[in-house]
C-alpha cells in the first residue's frame, strides 16, 4: 500500500480529531472509529487502490467542518476571532502602552490552534513585540553619548576622555546592522509562523 494514500487518510483523520476536540472524549473517539471503519470499507470495495480514489473517498466522507457541526459543535470559522488577532497584537500591540501585546499574549495562550512550542516562541520573541526593538534600538546611541561625555580636564587645559574598561563605546556599524536585522526579522518570522500554523488547522 503506497505511503501517500496512507498519509492522506491519516491527515484527514488528524484534522477530524482536531475539529472534534471540544466533544467529550468517548463521543469523539467513537465518531473517529466509525469514520475510520467507513474509509476502510470504502477502500475494501475498490477494485484497485490509487491516490485519486482515496481522495475521492475522503471527499465523499465530507469536510471535517460539516461533521463537526453535525456533532452539535458551533462553526469553527469565525468562532476563534482571537486566532486572527493574536499574531498582530503580539507584533504591534506593544506600541499601545504594552497593553495590546499583553492582550495578544492572553489570546495566544487561550488558543488551541498553536502548540506549546509555538506559544513559547511567540512569548519570548520578543516580549513587547516590535515596540521592544524600537525602544532597545535607541539605547546604543544614548549609551555612547553618555559614555563619551565622561572626560577629565587636565591642568594644562587639555581634555582627556576615557572609555570605561577600555572598550570602544561605538560598536561596529556592520554588527549593529546585523543585530537590527535579526531583532526585526525574528518577530516578523514568528508572526508569519503563527498565521501559517493557524491557516493549516
Amino acid at each position: 500500500m503506497p505511503d501517500s494514500t496512507e498519509h492522506l487518510i491519516n491527515r484527514y483523520l488528524k484534522h477530524l480529531d482536531d475539529a472534534l476536540r471540544d466533544l467529550p472524549t468517548a463521543r469523539r473517539k467513537q465518531i473517529l472509529r466509525d469514520i475510520a471503519e467507513h474509509i476502510q470499507t470504502a477502500r475494501h470495495n475498490l477494485p484497485e487502490e490509487n491516490e485519486a480514489q482515496i481522495r475521492q473517498i475522503l471527499e465523499e466522507v465530507g469536510d471535517v467542518e460539516i461533521i463537526r457541526q453535525e456533532a452539535g459543535l458551533p462553526p469553527e470559522k469565525g468562532a476563534y476571532w482571537g486566532d486572527r488577532w493574536a499574531p498582530w497584537l503580539l507584533l504591534l500591540g506593544g506600541f499601545f502602552f504594552l497593553i495590546g501585546w499583553i492582550f495578544g499574549l492572553i489570546l495566544l495562550w487561550q488558543s488551541r490552534v498553536w502548540r506549546l512550542g509555538d506559544k513559547i516562541l511567540a512569548t519570548f520573541v520578543w516580549p513587547g513585540g516590535l515596540a521592544t526593538v524600537v525602544v532597545f534600538g535607541g539605547m546604543p546611541v544614548a549609551t555612547s553619548s553618555t559614555v563619551s561625555s565622561v572626560c577629565t580636564s587636565n591642568v594644562n587645559g587639555s581634555v582627556h576622555c576615557l572609555s570605561p574598561a577600555g572598550v570602544s563605546p561605538h560598536p561596529s556599524p556592520v554588527l549593529l546592522v546585523i543585530l537590527a536585522v535579526i531583532a526585526v526579522s525574528a518577530p516578523l518570522f514568528v508572526t508569519w509562523r503563527l498565521f501559517h500554523v493557524a491557516s493549516r488547522s
Partner: peptide
C-alpha cells in the same frame, strides 16, 4: 442517504447516528 442527497457528506451520518 448521500445518494438521496439528504446528507452533505457520508461522514455526517456517524454523529447523527450517535445522537
Amino acid at each position: 442517504l448521500a445518494q438521496a442527497r439528504l446528507i452533505a457528506g457520508e461522514g455526517t451520518i456517524y454523529p447523527l447516528l450517535a445522537r
